[in-house]
Amino acid sequence: MTPQLATRYVFSLAIKVGAPIVAGDIGWGTRRVIPVLGGEVRGPDMRGTILASGADFQVIRPNGFTELEAKYAFQMDDGAIVYIENIGIRFGPKEALDRIARGESVDPSLIYFRSVPRFETGAEKYRWLMEHLFIGSGARHPDRVELDVHQVM
């Protein structure tokens, strides 16, 4: 029998985002680029600052199903730099998705927003981030994305 899966909360990301840049209909959805403007990393053993260093590259399908691919970096309070590539999906009732698209607040419990973050760093202290799998549970707000990151044990 294989080992049982469990998760452990590691940290939260509060990611400040800019106005969407809309490239338009690409044939299977609408391409959007959401600039990452900054933010913070906070957790029991980790603190840091999200750098204005990337974006979330999205495709929104006609039914509102959204494919997410965010790439950016953060700096830990001890100076270490961590790159994150976060692949995910977001979906929910049409009226809730329409409100998000208009920049309005939506109860996060109405939206399925999950992701798989991957990390890269040269800092020995944080190499363990590269040696484990993680799952993110997110919420979209008008000015930010909040993501709780859990390590798969």
Rank of each mutant, 00 (worst) to 15 (best):
Y72W: 14
K71V: 11
I81S: 12
G48M: 02
Q75N: 04
G79W: 08
G79S: 09
M46E: 06
I100L: 12
D98M: 06
G88N: 08
Y112D: 13
A96C: 07
I81G: 08
L51A: 04
L68P: 12
F113S: 09
P108W: 04
F119G: 05
L129P: 02
M130Y: 03
P93R: 13
I60A: 04
Y83F: 08
P108E: 01
A70E: 06
S109N: 12
L51V: 02
I135E: 09
F134A: 07
P117D: 09
A52F: 00
I81M: 13
A96T: 02
P108D: 01
F57S: 02
R102M: 07
E95I: 12
I81H: 14
I135F: 11
G88I: 05
D98T: 04
D78I: 01
F119L: 11
E120G: 12
Y126H: 03
A52V: 00
F113T: 06
E124H: 11
A55H: 01
A73S: 15
S115F: 09
S109K: 14
Q75I: 02
R102D: 11
T49C: 03
S109G: 09
I84K: 03
V59F: 03
Y112F: 09
N86P: 09
I81T: 13
G79E: 13
I100R: 04
R90V: 00
W128E: 07
M130F: 00
R118N: 15
G88L: 06
E67W: 12
F119C: 11
Q58W: 00
P62Y: 05
F134V: 07
L129G: 01
P44E: 13
P93C: 04
A101L: 12
G92H: 03
F134S: 08
M76T: 14
D107S: 08
I135L: 15
D107F: 07
D56W: 01
P93S: 06
T49A: 05
A80R: 10
A96S: 10
M130T: 09
A80T: 08
G64A: 10
K71C: 12
N86E: 11
I135G: 11
F91Y: 15
E131C: 04
D78G: 05
M46F: 10
H132C: 10
W128L: 04
K94I: 05
G88P: 04
N63T: 10
P93D: 10
A70I: 02
R127I: 02
F57R: 01
A80G: 09
G79F: 05
F65E: 12
A101T: 11
D98E: 14
G136Y: 08
I111D: 08
